[in-house]
Each structure stands twice: as structure tokens, then as C-alpha cells.
Design a protein around this nucleic acid. Sequence first.
DNA 1: CCATATAGTCACTAATCTTGACTATCAAAA
DNA 2: TTTTGATAGTCAAGATTAGTGACTATATGG
Lengths: 144, 144
Amino acid sequence: MRRSERKKIDPDLGILASRTLFAFQRELFSTIANQGHSRIRPRHGAILAYLDPEGSRATDLSAQSGQHKQVIGTLVDELVELGYVERRPDPKDRRAKLIVPTELGLDQMVKADALAEQIERRHAAKVGAAEWATFKRVFQSLTT
Amino acid sequence: MRRSERKKIDPDLGILASRTLFAFQRELFSTIANQGHSRIRPRHGAILAYLDPEGSRATDLSAQSGQHKQVIGTLVDELVELGYVERRPDPKDRRAKLIVPTELGLDQMVKADALAEQIERRHAAKVGAAEWATFKRVFQSLTT
DNA sequence: CCATATAGTCACTAATCTTGACTATCAAAA
DNA sequence: TTTTGATAGTCAAGATTAGTGACTATATGG
């Protein structure tokens, strides 16, 4: 059997992960674009996916998303520009700033979370609840 | 519970996929760098992961990797430069060219495949063979 | 021979990632 | 209190990666 064929029948973890990631992003961002959030790109997910409604620090977002602090800074600039978040001084640490979602940001976050859940429910319905539970448990254990 | 905490306990599919992908790429490419292939970057995986030892067409690589033809062209240029592949006319179609791995390219492909398998075996050993089998089956079904 | 589709490349633009250095502030030891 | 080392965020620059439209050569089916 040719190598490319073997890869098609039994794709490795990297191939599966990248396909899943890109399909997920495509669906989520194209759907959410139709719900009033057409200006944001998958990129901005690094912020919005982890942001707390009460506000988060850039450093925490950096650690959670795995992006460099520099990248977080740029993305926050863009999201401020687009009206999704604002920067406020952190009362607990004068070095730090809190990234706080605006109304618009909160709306995006709620909708994105709902969409993610909906996508997962669809997969779960397709493969069965038990299999899905196993899948997610194993998946999560890989990244720890 | 804070949103960021919830995301940590029960990360969505996108978060899991991106973590898995990046961890996999990091490990594979840093290990393979120590095995004599330090010049190639994860990016080149789009070619090398799908390349047939007998040679593949740019169009097929483009379809399999999901990259634009233009990107494939650039990556092939680089891999030619680095001595991993060469372009040969396709005897079956004079418009097309076959991207054929050199000795060096074949060596990388064999090692990369072995490493991917090794990473998966490690995960399988950790979670148990049955769970791993279910995991991979469900994972694969997501992308079809 | 002709019309239409396909393989690959060129040229260009936009987006994204990575690094190193720098200022302000913190936290804790001397 | 002062010093020392770490941390938060930003600036600036460069390297890497992604996306588009147009173009040439060849193929395929009438």
C-alpha cells in the first residue's frame, strides 16, 4: 500500500488534530460571523476563548493560549479597536492591566461557548454518548 | 466558577485539538532535529507527511494537506534547496511534475513516521489499549 | 481543430510568529 | 531601607506563513 494511502486510512495524531482544529475553527467563526461578529478572526480566539467576564491579565491569557505576550498585546490592541475589550489598570498590581470584555465582547463569548457546545453535542449524537465521553477523557489526558 | 477555570477543567474541542497539535509538532520536530534533520520546520510537514516514496503531484499534496497550491510550490522550493526532494516531469502528464523524495527525504519520512508511532504508543500505554482504540476511532470519525 | 478544464508558477499583499531589549513595579532577602 | 532578582507589559524589527489573481503549458472531449 502506498504511504499516502496508509495515511488516509490511519492518519496520525498530528493529522487528526490539525483537521479537527481547522474544521472546528472554520465552523465556529463562520457561524459567529453571521451572528453579528464578522470582524473577528480565529486568531482572536486566543483572547476571547480564555477571557474572564471579570477581566484577565495578559500574562494569564498568554499562558493559557500558549501565545507569546507580544502576540497577546497585538490581539488586544485589535480587539480594543473593534470594541470587544478594554484595558483597565489592575487594582491588585500596578504593573498589570486587566483585559475586560465589553458588552460586545461578552455577547461574542456567550455565543462562541454555545456554538462550541453545539458542535460537540452534534459529534456526541453521532458517535454515542459513551464513546464521546471516552474520547474527551482521553483527549484531555493527552494534554496534561 | 470563573469561565477560565471552567475552560481548564472542561476544555472545548478546539482547545484540545490545538494543544494536541502543537505538542505533537513540537515533540516531533525537536526530536527529528536531533536525528540529523535540523533544517526543516513544521511547515514542511505539509509535504513530507503526505509524500509518497514514488513521488507525488503538487495538486495531490495540496488536496491532502489542505494548503493552497502556491504554498506547496514554495515549500517544495525550500525542500529542493535543502536536498529533501526533487522535481521530475510526470511521465503520465506533461503538465505535471512529480515531487520525489531524495535519500535524505526518505530518511526523514521513515524517522518521522517512526516517531509519530512512538508518540502514539506512549499515549496508548498511558490510557490503555482499548481506550486508545476508541479515541482514535472517534477522532477519525470527526474529520469525515 | 476547438472549447474548456487542469497543473503548476509568478508576483504581490496580508497576516502571523518570534526575539531581544526596555521601563515600571513587585517581592523578598540583606 | 536598600538591594536584588523576578514579573507585567510594551516597542521594534525581522522571519515565517497564508491568501489572491493572473498566466503558460498541457490535457481531454467533442
